[in-house]
Design a protein around this nucleic acid. Sequence first.
RNA 1: GCGAGGAUGGCGGAAUUGGCAGACGCACUAGCUUGAGGUGCUAGCGAGUAACAUCGUGGGGGUUCAAGUCCCCCUCCUCGCACCA
Length: 852
Amino acid sequence: MPYRPSEIEPRWQDHWEKHDSYVARIQHGQPKFYALDMFPYPSGKGLHVGHPAGYTASDVVCRYKRARGFNVLHPIGYDAFGLPAEQRAIEEGIAPQISTAESIETFRRQLKRLGYSYDWSREISTADPAYYKWTQWIFTRLYARGVAYVGEGFVNWCAALGTVLANDEVIDGKSERGGHPVERKRMSQWMMRISAYADRLLAGLDTIDWPDATKAAQREWIGRSEGAFVDFAVDGSAETITVFTTRPDTLFGATYLVLAPEHALVDAVTTAAQREAVAAYQKRSAARSERDRQASKEKTGVDTGARAINPATGEAVPVWIADYVIAGYGTGAIMAVPGHDERDWEFARAMALPIKEVISGGDVTKAAWSGEGAMVNSGRFDGTATAGGEAIRAVTAWLAEKGAARATVNFKIRDWTFARQRYWGEPIPVLKEGDAVVRALTPDELPLELPPVADYAPTGTGESPLSRAVNWLDVDDPVTGRRLRREVDTMPGSAGSSWYFLRYCDPHNDQEFCSREASDYWMPVDLYVGGAEHRVGHLLYSRMWQKALHEEGFVRDAEPFAKLRHQGMVLAKTYYTAGESGKFNHLTIPERVVKEDEKTAQIVAPGGGEPVAAEFRWEKMSKRKGNVVNPDDIIDVYGVDALRVYLCFLTPLESDKPWQTSQLEAQHDWLKRVWRLYFEGDEDTQRVADVAPTAEESKVLHRAIDKVTRDIEAMSLNTAISALHVATRDLARLGARSREVLGPLAQLMAPFAPHLAETLWTRGAGHEVTPGGVAYAPWPVADAKWLVDDTVTIGVQVNGKTVTTVELALDADEATAVAAAQAIDAVARQLAGKTIAKVIYKSGKILNLIAK
RNA sequence: GCGAGGAUGGCGGAAUUGGCAGACGCACUAGCUUGAGGUGCUAGCGAGUAACAUCGUGGGGGUUCAAGUCCCCCUCCUCGCACCA
């Protein structure tokens, strides 16, 4: 019988499940390994092959680590709250509780079919009250610490969705979901004071093994900059305008101030004459969405009529408002130094404001000079060099003495809007009287469960559909004895995912979110694999929650994820046909592809007809583009082991993966060849025998052990598979049948093709069937004596150019090597008529003859 | 504009960190096998030549006995951020 994945795969999956093969238990004294996958959002569409790309990589590592003696925790669950289920509820009237449960069932079935070594006893769902009880509890702790607070701020209001969105849910001024326009609106909101953790979030990055790009993105997002607050007294007023600047050394060149249109002092300082123009400008700015503001870099603004005193020069400078100054950054006010800041220079030009040179080195009549130089026109500081920051320190110190400045550190990161006017999220566990929060719920009052509602549609007023749950809404509070109202906002989707890695450590604990014993043992996560799209969202929020819990002593570690790797997206071809313009921009889902070359194709459009010309592009799989591959279909034909091997082999982990069925078939064919190393004939006659391996066979095996081991450690799974290709090919050629060779080979296969490997290990190599299976058989160790040859082939160069190769004894000395090289015709030809002036010989590497 | 990462055959990609460029696959070509169920085996496959010579890792310079790898300049691509003072 040939290799039949459809028969062996379900059998082994049953075996693992029945024997709890991958259930993790705390074993003090045994090294632990915690491998985490970013848990999926269970959509109604089911899993697509994008999910297994990352999940397979972490599963390979887990299976390898078990064999290396680690106590492995590899859990899975569902990030179940979120907009899609709510949209379905609105459109189809299906309660999110029900549609989510159905989706989870589909996901669970599909994930189990993929043969991952998950500990299913730890499965969680963020929408399960037993889970979100603790999300709510953590919220109350954060509230007690003042980390969660109600703040007035500008939020992204999306009228079409009837809700407020987080910054990272807004893309190009439109909602991430649906692409609806988003505008800025002032609103009272639950916020998370992530800004208070800015320094620690920054410092922690130096302690963890994460991709550089991801660290860079987080640093950028946090946006630390050193500078100073500088006070400008408003002429003829008691008000003071404080600006933030990173260049106090340019203060003598500050020829005007600019306030953000929303700045709190605008009304107070504006003169009567300018009141009308200022009001008009403010109104216009408010109506402009972020998108509009960003679309145009053209400088606009209005003079408030006010004059402020430059604390360095004592001069009165005009105070303007302009929307190039951002209300939420720094103090929302700047000192404009047009001579040395490009934006200020442009604004000064447009508004005919004075430009003054205070740093030498450029020509400020032509452009702003932002380079280094010496201070000029700066009184006592003239001549001070700006390089090295001395000028900045000197000016700041001088002003500080006068009480007009304070050195400070400013962060770009804004507090995290922690509320949605939506139904399908965790209820925020507080009681209010009017707008005032009276108290957070106590632990024994949790979970505060989501009540059923009749209508899930946004109320449109900005209030969540929970405001319709009248019986739930108002409570006679036993603690205060007052009639109080529940918060109708719910938490954002990122709430439940900000701590799920902790719950996995202790998923059934109903006394604590996670015991210290469990988190001390399992945390931190040793390997986290997931998409790069979560760089500044989830991966930042999770770090913040961990830090907050750490601060309170609930967890030991300050960082949750010791090592992070991203997996690439699975891409598939999308076809575009020509529109009237002649450009290939019409997405067309082909019924059939007739022929195809590098960029173009002939396709038959849906409904048949003549083939038409099309171009294809590699794009992320999506239902809309008709290029989704369902793992079930692949597994039906090729088996899950082939899919796993294919996903590992196709590209390095972090690269995007262009879907190529022919490559998948090739890996399936390879597994068939491996099968034939162990079984032959229609009756599956066992080929493996108790015979001593030949030297050649040992060499092939031990080199594979060495390479596969190093590659898995480095997460270079594509090259590990290629090493296995080589080993199995060579062993087949050698006709190997020794148990001493084919047993370990099955173990090397096991992380990648676990089902096949179980069969090869037991029925093939004759090992006993055990509850844990091949995953727990000690990983083979490469014997160094097989890794080196007696002889080695090295390159022979003449004057640095490779001429040929020569086989030498490993320990051949220089004279021997030169003599051997000279005996070769090609070398002799190159050396004809010349004498060897110098010999460079690196034993085992290269021989280079310098001849003249 | 700023930040990060890239550029190697028709394609995906290898290359103990300076030492035989193109491992392993796909696609393609040829031969054998098979001749109902996504076959199996063998060989070839950077360019160029009849064969050598030769030329080849985005372009240009440099360091070195030796550069895909190190240094300088440039071009292009991808991803973040983007009027952040």
